[in-house]
């Protein structure tokens, strides 16, 4: 018998810098794993999370994976909805206009609205 699978919508909220802890990597792994199960979670970068989008990252000297480059592969996993807090971008003077991922900028109240659109929120 066929059972209908109801898809829950999930927003991953990324609030930490890329290399300061393992949280950014854990969030990316969660996003990519969701895609493997055809779930395609959406992403919101807010606060220090926008530092993950800082261009020109080169983590080879540290022996880490380059998180900025890994994020660039998101469209290949059909993760197409990526949102970012406008004020946080301004705080760090980050320009995402050349980002390989299409990014939608949101202000504080829009972020609140966005969060209420999802069944579940996952904070990293």
């Amino acid at each position: 018998m066929m059972t209908a699978v109801t898809k829950k919508t999930v927003l991953i909220v990324l609030r930490h810098s890329p290399y300061g802890s393992g949280l950014a990597k854990a969030a990316l792994d969660t996003a990519l794993a969701s895609a493997a199960f055809e779930q395609s979670f959406d992403l919101l970068f807010m606060g220090d999370g926008v530092l993950q989008l800082h261009p020109g990252q080169d983590s080879r000297v540290k022996g880490f994976k380059n998180l900025g480059r890994q994020l660039a592969s998101l469209p290949l996993y059909e993760i197409n909805h990526v949102y970012v807090e406008t004020q946080a971008l301004a705080r760090y003077n980050i320009d995402v206009s050349k980002s390989p991922v299409h990014i939608q900028q949101l202000n504080g109240s829009e972020i609140r609205q966005l969060m209420t659109c999802y069944d579940h929120l996952m904070g990293f």
């Binding site: 990519l32 895609a35 493997a36 994976k65 380059n66 480059r69 890994q70 592969s73 290949l76 996993y77």
Partner: peptide
């Protein structure tokens, strides 16, 4: 380009 190996979907 992406500093990772792709999963099947990608």
């Amino acid at each position: 380009a992406y500093d990772s190996a792709p999963a099947m979907r990608a």
